[in-house]
């Protein structure tokens, strides 16, 4: 076992919808500073997993600790404080349609009751837009942006609170290969620049190969295997081979 601190600890997580068992005794740790990619095929419960981690879904059993806090026991106020340190990039971006890019970016700042002056806000908005390379879009509406741009703005919005952890829900799905590569590059840059730990949910092998320091494979609701890309690729297990061939 490594001696690095775990920022997210998921233990024996179970999630059941009706009689459909989505997660079954799922356990996984995310260590400080690492990029961890969770692979799983569509419908395997990847989104359910990270929605549990951020407290959007309540699991039927199990324990989740985020930055040392047991999030299943927290009240709304304490949960918000944890959430302010965790960025979440949604699968569908979740940009607010009725707001401009700038208002989208300011929303989390204003809502988390942060004491910031307008000047600081302007500075922060500029900084995150610069990190994603879209400085001149502040007055545009989300509907006017392309898919890749929307993904970048959504990433900028999660960055604006300088989170310690970022959860990415399929950041490259629905993008063309070139844009997907740009996003992967961006994820790596963000990790270097903001020193975040990242949990990336995906079924994109390219992403796993280039951005992951460690990979976990989600099969049948369990954490089936973990390891580096090279380790898993060398495995002879037929369930894993299905991903790597």
């Amino acid at each position: 076992m490594k001696t690095r601190d775990a920022v997210i600890e998921v233990e024996n997580l179970c999630v059941v919808f009706g009689d459909h068992v989505v997660l079954d005794q799922f356990s996984l740790n995310l260590y400080a500073g690492e990029n961890l990619v969770v692979l799983g095929k569509s419908g395997s419960g990847k989104s359910v997993l990270i929605k549990c981690i951020i407290g959007l879904l309540r699991p039927d059993a199990g324990r989740i600790r985020v930055l040392g806090q047991n999030i299943l026991d927290l009240d709304v106020h304490a949960l918000d404080q944890v959430r302010a340190q965790v960025g979440f990039l949604f699968q569908s971006n979740a940009l607010y349609d009725s707001m401009t890019v700038r208002e989208n970016l300011e929303f989390p700042l204003r809502r988390h009751w942060l004491q910031v002056t307008q000047k600081e806000v302007d500075q922060m908005v500029y900084e995150v837009l610069e990190s994603v390379g879209l400085e001149d879009t502040t007055h545009m509406m989300p509907a006017e942006l392309s898919g890749g741009m929307r993904k970048r703005i959504a990433l900028a919005r999660t960055l604006i609170l300088k989170p310690a952890i970022i959860l990415y829900d399929e950041p490259t799905t629905g993008l063309d290969t070139i844009t997907a590569l740009e996003i992967i590059e961006l994820i790596k840059q963000v990790q270097l620049r903001y020193r975040t730990s990242a949990l990336v949910i995906s079924h994109d092998m390219k992403l796993a190969q280039t951005a992951a320091e460690r990979i976990a494979v989600l099969i049948d609701g369990k954490c089936y295997a973990t390891g580096t890309y090279a380790e898993l690729k060398a495995s002879t297990d037929p369930n894993l081979r299905a991903y790597f061939d």
Binding site: L56, F90, Q91, A94, Y96, F107
Partner: peptide, 21 residues
């Protein structure tokens, strides 16, 4: 229609994780 599209595009979830009920 507004809340419906906010629900399906996860905007409602995004609000919740942004410190908003």
């Amino acid at each position: 229609a507004e809340l419906g599209s906010m629900r399906v595009t996860e905007q409602i979830d995004a609000m919740e994780v942004s410190g908003t009920n």
